[in-house]
């Protein structure tokens, strides 16, 4: 599976911010995805103090490897420190299984759509 060009967009505002990650998250593209997500989260902290929930929509991903999982765990830690709830939507049962293996499902609400 090719790492597609990183593509992170914001699809929500107000109390819930939705970030749509339109690609796989792999060792080969995680740095770019990380930077894009971080930029958006930093903007949100400044511009949207009422922010209470982060929804990561990664339903476009077909594969997330260990580096990608580590990144998602880091995002979970990041938002937890700020008392922001994390919801992650995935469309792949295999990815959901990976989340359970690394216990990410205990850090975030994982929704299989």
């Amino acid at each position: 599976m090719n790492a597609s060009i990183p593509q992170v967009t914001v699809a929500g505002s107000g109390e819930e911010i939705t970030l749509v990650v339109g690609c796989n998250i792999l060792s080969t593209n995680v740095q770019t995805v990380r930077q894009q997500v971080l930029d958006i989260l930093n903007d949100a902290e400044v511009s949207n103090p009422d922010w209470k929930q982060l929804h990561l929509d990664i339903t476009a991903a077909q594969m997330i490897d260990s580096t990608g999982l580590n990144f998602l765990v880091a995002v979970a830690r990041h938002v937890k420190k700020r008392s922001i709830e994390l919801k992650i939507s995935v469309s792949s049962a295999n990815i959901a299984k990976s989340f359970s293996f690394i216990r990410l499902d205990r850090q975030a609400q994982v929704v299989l759509v």
């Binding site: 490897d65 260990s66 580096t67 999982l69 580590n70 299984k97 990976s98 293996f101 690394i102």
Partner: peptide, 11 residues
């Protein structure tokens, strides 16, 4: 441990 090992162990 690195999460790669967790995947290798569990999948």
């Amino acid at each position: 441990r690195h999460s790669g090992l967790v995947l290798i162990r569990n999948f």
